[in-house]
Design a protein around this nucleic acid. Structure first.
Lengths: 340, 340
DNA sequence: TTTAAATACGAAATCGATTGCGATTTTTTA
DNA sequence: TAAAAAATCGCAATCGATTTCGTATTTAAA
């Protein structure tokens, strides 16, 4: 009894044809209620479990969605995953999860593995290294439904879910200015990333509106390595012309800044104010507590899954339109941006 | 050209039999080098991708491992996942990921979904509500290889990977005592959990060795809700006979404690010292920085995957022995346990 | 009462890759 | 040079569920 029984064996037990049993279990109108009951009862008794691969092979769909994220140890992505999973499970879908670790090569490998339709669709946020998107175009050409979120890929004509990056960055910068900051720096991952572009634009516009000049050294490009980032930020903070405010476009760079500040004689928020995009639940517990722009991660995940499943369920009526859907973030002011 | 071509179509293109093409691609000795080259070259040209479900159906294995964790927004589990994924990908395995959200009912549903061999094996950490394990026994009886980590299930005779829970809790408690704590509390999730049992034992033994009595109100059972936990801990801290030291068996309860402390007039570490099991990278950035017992999460994940893949690759030679493998944690002392 | 239609079910093809076995050709051995 | 052995490759079955088509029985209509 190690491995379950097959449909054929179940049919034999019932002295029925496999086709009949299949139809009975799938509640076909062609089968009488009497036999349906018999079949279902026997199926339960013998704990029959349909083979998912036989079904996938036959129906050419796997009831599986692949999710590709840049990293797992990240509150934002973890929350998005929870949102996706919630909706997916409601509709009987499974989740194949892949992390690129911010590495394009790894991303390419993963994408290549998915070409064989192991998953019915893909939800992804590209790595910070991704600028050439030919590997993603290939997916699109294969007719694999794909949805982007957060770090989107404007070249691929499909639906994207993002937050109001421009406005949030603009508001965050404006807040820093209102709190008295004169020299505001912008911390970013790769500048090719959609989110850094938009957030940078918001940052620049807020500066311009306040009549402030963006200094070149204040646009800091960071990388994957936490150590290097801390080093870079420390240098910036120790430089003669150091900033008195920071808008960090991602959570990890704000944390790196906290580490850097520890290495200097500066103090937050007196010498340096900082606000960051972040979904860290313990932002309020940092020293000092960290002002954040919180993205609607769970909702983003849910919406991605909802749209995708609609598309998978009714392929004709629901195409993935080339559009960007924006779900706004929430500003939470804490100690790190307090005016003295 | 929307969907890829099949083996049969590829064979037709080459004017060969499907069997020959299959063997050529699988590097069979029965095929000449000349045709192998032709086949491989044509396969690349037409971008042939074998159908994974046809293969799974035939070979009765999916090259997929299911991972079940209690929650995703948790540094420990995220790191374990990274470890599992690293090894799994090295061997061409995919990961189906499920989160139970600490809910047994959800856990049962997920486990039930996996009975049909959608995954070749399972790596899991049980939910804090799990006490009855009949749903897991069923998996075992179905011959589905399963490995537990961290929150293990001693009733199931298979391999388990844990950290040295007893010793770490013992050392952590001893450290608190050395720092001058007289009344030490223990924060736990469900008491049925393997990790709380072991960590509690370590806590008790350290107390006993120091000649201290464990007070009943100092063993605090917490739950899933952060709000309720903060409430519970706040009450404890406001009680007449309040503790001056805390050993937290999981990260989230330490964070809840920080929140609770904010609601009282107490201060860490002067009035209350705290150390916790945690894999939070920003533990050093909290106010005050948090002393931690860091589990070897990545290694645990890697070892789980390694063992499982060995078992899947050589089913005869590698049974999953009923044993517990211990990988030690690391104590990191920070401000939260400093003596005045 | 005869015929048409509805009901209930079975036989066999199908999805795509793998593999045991047989057939043919080439090479080796006696 | 004939027989044995090796090298190559094709045919067809197989994995398990679904579905098209067909058939037998029952019911309704004429």
């Amino acid at each position: 009894m190690s491995n379950g029984i097959s449909l054929k064996e179940l049919a034999a037990e019932l002295k029925l044809a496999p086709s009949t049993v299949s139809r009975a279990l799938n509640d076909s109108y062609e089968i009488s209620e009497a036999t349906k009951k018999k079949v279902i009862s026997m199926a339960e008794k013998l704990n029959y479990q349909p083979n998912p691969f036989a079904r996938s092979l036959r129906e050419n769909k796997s009831k599986t969605i692949a999710v590709i994220i840049p990293e797992r140890i990240n509150n934002f992505f973890a929350q998005v995953m929870d949102g996706i999973e919630e909706i997916a499970h409601e509709h009987g879908y499974h989740l194949l999860v892949y992390s690129t670790h911010e590495d394009v090569e790894k991303e390419k490998k993963i994408v290549s593995l998915l070409q064989n339709k192991r998953a019915d669709a893909i939800v992804m946020s590209v790595s910070s290294q991704t600028s050439d998107v030919s590997h993603l175009v290939k997916l699109y050409q294969r007719d694999l439904p794909i949805i982007f979120f957060d770090r989107v890929c404007s070249d691929i004509p499909t639906t994207k879910f993002i937050t109001n990056d421009y406005e949030s960055a603009y508001e965050g910068t404006k807040h820093l200015i209102q709190q008295g900051c004169q020299k505001i720096a912008f911390l970013m991952l790769a500048k090719e990333l959609s989110i850094t572009k938009e957030r940078y634009r918001g940052y620049l516009d807020a500066l311009k509106e306040a009549g402030m000049q963006p200094e070149p050294t204040f646009s800091l490009h960071c990388c994957r390595s936490d150590e290097e980032n801390i080093q870079l930020i420390t240098e910036l903070l120790k430089s003669e012309n150091r900033p008195d405010g920071i808008l960090s476009s991602v959570e990890k760079l704000a944390l790196a800044t906290y580490h850097s500040v520890k290495k200097t004689k500066l103090s937050i928020p007196d010498d340096l104010k900082i606000i960051t995009f972040s979904n860290m639940s313990s932002a309020g517990l940092l020293s000092p507590s960290l002002s954040t722009i919180t993205q609607p991660a769970l909702t983003i995940g849910q919406e991605c899954a909802k749209l995708l499943i609609k598309k998978l369920t009714k392929p004709r009526h629901n195409e993935l339109k080339d559009q960007v859907i924006v779900i706004p973030s929430k500003l939470t002011i804490r100690e790190s941006t307090m005016a003295r």
